[in-house]
Nucleic acid binder design. Structure first.
Lengths: 201, 201
DNA sequence: TGAAAATGATTGATCAATCAATCTTTAACA
DNA sequence: TGTTAAAGATTGATTGATCAATCATTTTCA
């Protein structure tokens, strides 16, 4: 007796709700202080139901980290690493990234936990690290373009610039822990640009 | 029957050992996965002894965060915010900070946890935040000096610069999680300088 | 000898995971 | 259309493990 489409949709919605609340709770209270019971209560589901959607707590955590990454990665990679005007493209990239980081504070707090305790969360860390490698290199490509065109100084290695920039984004996110307001975040876009040593300003 | 000096020294050493191991374990495995039993084993002390030196686990964590901060804060504030040559002073400050951050990775991982979960670790966060305010403003003072002297562009607000710089330091620390090697860290000093928009380069 | 530190077994609380019982949905058939 | 039975989702009480904290006993030291 297979499930109807309606039923499947209903269950998917339930799963999503559990995962959403898990992300919030894990990010605010950490792995151990987020009990299955709290996740169940927060998502309006019985204790036992959590286990019909996720094999165990570790698996729930894993999906919390990995599934949201899948949503975010195309947004983070949404820039052209071989554009006509690298400087303009960098500016537009920074603008997008800053907006994005300002809005995904909860998830990035979770990411911070995984990075900070990568021994403990080895499996999740590997997933994040793999994406980060792609991200880093794509930015470095764009920086290299900028340097070739003479719009950026050549003194700094593109990969170093790229690591500096991504570190800066994460650092700002940590720093402005509870300020999603765009006004504050927008102030940091010109500062981020400085990291790439522009020749013109 | 008062304790002898020798005895007091011995006990202080024991307390230090417990605290040192607690910092390592808390930073690598987080609060809940660091059991008192593990701390006791790691520091070569009986389970019960931990409680003669620290009232409870929460207190042990608090001291792990706060006491190390007391050691580090004078080192972080060891620069002149009203020097003859602000540019040179900034360079020297950055150099010191980079060296320091490269060497206190374990403790900074702990700091990251407290910041990332400031609701959960409210008391510890307040202590860190109070120091950070001082730190931030002292850097901003130096930047303001640099702007007045014309060595730095005026386009960016000194406090914004200061937040950007401290965010950058923490971000790099997160990023290079397990690389205390100075070579890699040293590459980031010139990038950090860029955050202050120097007029000469 | 007595005062204080050290020890680890015990206790009570908490939590992940299981599982038997119940409820809901679906499809076959009259 | 109404009835029924099977499939599968939902539930929360129970279980077993883990851990912080206590405390009675032992050890150390002046």
């Amino acid at each position: 007796m297979a499930l109807s489409d309606k039923q499947i949709r209903k269950m998917k919605a339930k799963r999503d709700k559990i995962l959403d609340q898990a992300i919030i709770l894990f990010s605010e209270h950490g792995y151990n202080d987020t009990t299955i019971s709290k996740v169940a209560k927060a998502s309006g589901v019985s204790f036992g139901s959590v286990f019909t959607y996720f094999e165990n707590k570790e698996e729930l955590f894993h999906h919390a980290v990995v599934e949201r990454l899948k949503d975010l990665s195309p947004l983070l990679l949404d820039f052209n690493s071989n554009p006509e005007d690298p400087y303009k493209e960098l500016e537009s990239m920074i603008d997008k990234h800053i907006r994005l980081f300002a809005n995904v504070g909860t998830y990035l707090r979770l990411v911070t936990q995984v990075i900070g305790q990568h021994q403990r969360f080895e499996r999740q860390f590997k997933e994040l690290d793999q994406f980060y490698r792609t991200f880093r290199y794509k930015i470095a490509d764009l920086v290299a373009q900028g340097q070739s065109s003479g719009q950026l100084h050549r003194e700094i290695d593109p990969i170093t610039s790229s690591i500096a920039y991504t570190s800066f984004l994460m650092g700002i996110r940590l720093n402005l822990a509870d300020q999603p307001e765009h006004d504050i975040w927008a102030d940091f876009a010109p500062v981020a640009m400085q990291l790439f040593s522009p020749n013109i300003s």
